[in-house]
Amino acid sequence: MSEWHRVASEADLSLEAPLGVRVGDVQIAVVKLEDGIYAINDVCTHEFALLSEGFCEEGKLECPLHQACFDVRTGKVLNEPAEVDVATYPVKVENGAVFVQVP
């Protein structure tokens, strides 16, 4: 059952400054872009690293270890060394609170 989880308040998020959160065992990077707030799995698919500790620009999040890039909106991997996309999660904002839906 997918459930909505409150992971942050909207005020915690600034533009292109990823926030690492955890829902149960799932680590999630929550990223505010100009057109909205997005959530993707926080763990790089190449080697273990938290993408939320990486550099974010123009909707791309760069792994802090080996600079694989992921599209924050779609989770698509954009360059090697990673080969596999990261999961994306639906996001909603209610009364200034950010919720992420996690399966």
């Binding site: 690293a49 500790e53 990486g54 550099f55 620009e57 760069e62 792994c63 802090p64 270890l65 600079q67």
Partner: peptide, 9 residues
């Protein structure tokens, strides 16, 4: 050193 966020800048 453990600070990859600054790699691109």
């Amino acid at each position: 050193l453990n600070n990859g966020r600054e790699a691109t800048p």
